[in-house]
């Protein structure tokens, strides 16, 4: 599996996800600077966590308009698997690749903790190593993770089985306890928790490994 990690100014989980991809997929991802316009031919595009452009505007709003995003969006529309983690999820909603928005946490504070997620629908390239109903421990670390969408959008997400993960104990006020969603064709996944931080017992959890194994097996 060949992958690319997009690096925005202020990304800070770019190295972490690259480490996870290399550990499990066996080869280093291309690290692509946001100002580029050419994206290498890869099987997977990752938008990493962090504070792109400081999150000084809405989280992900500036990054969604970086030069490289034109090509990322074009490829995503053609079905290229695209994964957005944390700030990357925010970028995906800002670009419209995923519906809804991520608002300030209901508790107003930044929250970094391990949370239990329920795997809601495991039928995607990102998640097929999991089983529907699995409970997994993955850390969250965000200030703006409170998923919001209008009623019609929420209903569509539920009806089309686009909810990938739900929080067992909602840390941020997200509607329907949503932690991660797919696009309609399941080629795009955005999630607030950090699977790349759950790839070793010494880090507290190994439950993120299956996401990278799913990708390895599928792509």
């Amino acid at each position: 599996m060949k992958s690319a990690v997009i690096v925005f100014p202020g990304s800070n989980c770019d190295r972490d996800v690259a480490v996870a991809l290399e550990k499990i997929a066996g080869n280093r991802p291309h690290m692509v600077w946001h100002g580029e316009t050419d994206l290498p031919e890869v099987d997977l595009v990752v938008l990493p966590g962090g504070f792109s452009f400081g999150d000084y505007l809405r989280s992900g709003a500036m990054a969604g308009r970086s030069p490289i995003m034109k090509e990322v969006i074009t490829r995503a529309h053609k079905g290229k698997p695209t994964l957005g983690i944390c700030n990357g999820f925010q970028v995906l909603t800002e670009t419209g690749l995923l519906p809804g928005a991520l608002m300030r946490n209901a508790g107003l504070n930044f929250v970094c903790r391990d949370v239990t997620l329920k795997v809601e629908h495991a039928n995607s390239a990102f998640t097929n190593a999991y089983t529907n109903g699995d409970e997994i421990r993955i850390p969250v670390a965000h200030h703006d993770g409170n998923y919001f969408a209008d009623d019609d959008t929420l209903k569509a997400l539920e009806d089309n089985a686009q909810v990938a993960f739900r929080y067992k104990d909602n840390p941020n006020g997200s509607q329907n306890d949503i932690a991660g969603i797919y696009n309609e064709s399941r080629s795009v996944l955005g999630l607030m928790p950090h699977p790349e931080r759950a790839i070793g017992a010494e880090l507290g959890s190994t439950d993120g490994i299956k996401m990278f194994e799913s990708l390895m097996a599928s792509l």
């Binding site: 190295r15 480490v19 930044f110 970094c112 850390p139 670390a141 931080r197 790839i199 010494e202």
Partner: peptide, 16 residues
Amino acid sequence: IWEQYDHQVMGDTVVL
């Protein structure tokens, strides 16, 4: 307090 700090970024924190 410490849940308001990202204590895991960079993926090397082994004692929280």
